[in-house]
Computed example of a mutant assay.
Amino acid sequence: MTVRRISDIVRHKHPLTLPAHATVCEACRQMRERRIGAVLVVDEAQQLVGIFTGRDAVALMAESRNPAETTLSKVMTKKPCSISTRHSAIDALRLMEDGGFRHVPIVENGKVVSIVSRGDFHGEEQERLDTETGYWERI
């Protein structure tokens, strides 16, 4: 099996980034327009400060909070796990599996480069993760 690097996966991706003071309504509108499931929340230096996903939007609605008045800083996951472009695809999948999430920000030198999600990976990468998981469960 060919080991893909994260740099191969994100070469032509342009992640949606917004400042922490953007509203949930604006984030959801842009997520829908781009057909994506996550927004990377950045500071003025483009450094990652959080991530906002569809799951966060559902939690906000379940709490009856107003998305037009709630800023991302109030509902985002702060300091999310991230990886660099030097990692392999299987590294990203392991991180998602261990953390129970579907998106991983890609950061280089402290700045957002891109994002990967479960849908970015080939079946053979998922099969390898399943094999590894099964191996560790038997030990």
Score class of each variant (00 low, 15 high):
Gly54Lys: 02
Val24Glu: 10
Glu63Gly: 02
Gln126Gly: 11
Gly123Glu: 06
Thr2Phe: 14
Arg32Cys: 01
Leu18Ile: 03
Ser73Asn: 09
Leu129Phe: 12
Glu125Pro: 03
Gly119Glu: 01
Glu125Gly: 03
Thr77Ser: 14
Thr133Met: 06
Trp136His: 09
Cys25His: 14
Ser88Val: 01
His103Phe: 08
Arg32Lys: 05
Ile9Trp: 06
Val75Leu: 05
Arg4Cys: 08
Arg55Met: 07
Arg65Met: 15
Val75Thr: 09
Arg128Thr: 15
Asn109Gly: 13
Arg35Gly: 11
Val49Gln: 14
Val3Arg: 09
Thr23Cys: 10
Lys79Val: 02
Asn66Ala: 04
Thr131Asn: 09
Leu95Val: 05
Arg11Ala: 13
Gly110Pro: 04
His21Trp: 14
Asn109Tyr: 11
Val3Leu: 12
Arg32Phe: 05
Gly37Glu: 03
Glu132His: 07
Arg138Gly: 09
Met31Pro: 02
Asn66Val: 00
Leu129Arg: 08
Met96Arg: 09
Ala62Val: 14
Arg4His: 11
Gln126Leu: 15
Asn109Ile: 09
Arg118Glu: 04
Lys74Ser: 13
Ile83Val: 15
His87Gln: 10
Pro80Leu: 08
Trp136Glu: 06
Pro105Ser: 04
Gly99Ala: 13
Val75Gln: 06
Arg35Met: 09
Ile90Asn: 02
Tyr135Cys: 09
Val41Asp: 03
Leu48Gly: 05
Val58Ile: 15
Leu129Ala: 04
Ala38Cys: 15
Thr23Ser: 15
Thr131Ala: 12
Trp136Asp: 00
Lys111Asn: 10
Val3Tyr: 00
Glu44Trp: 12
Val104Asn: 01
Ser117Val: 10
Thr2His: 13
Ala45Thr: 06
Arg29Gly: 07
Thr131Phe: 14
Ile51Leu: 07
Pro67Leu: 11
Glu127Leu: 13
Glu108His: 01
Trp136Pro: 00
His21Tyr: 15
Gly123Val: 03
Val41His: 05
Ala45Arg: 04
Val39Lys: 02
Gly110Glu: 03
Ser73Leu: 08
Ala38Asn: 11
Glu97Met: 09
Ile115Pro: 11
Pro105Phe: 03
Val24Met: 11
Pro19Gly: 15
Asp120Pro: 03
Gln47Thr: 07
Asp8Gly: 01
Leu93Lys: 11
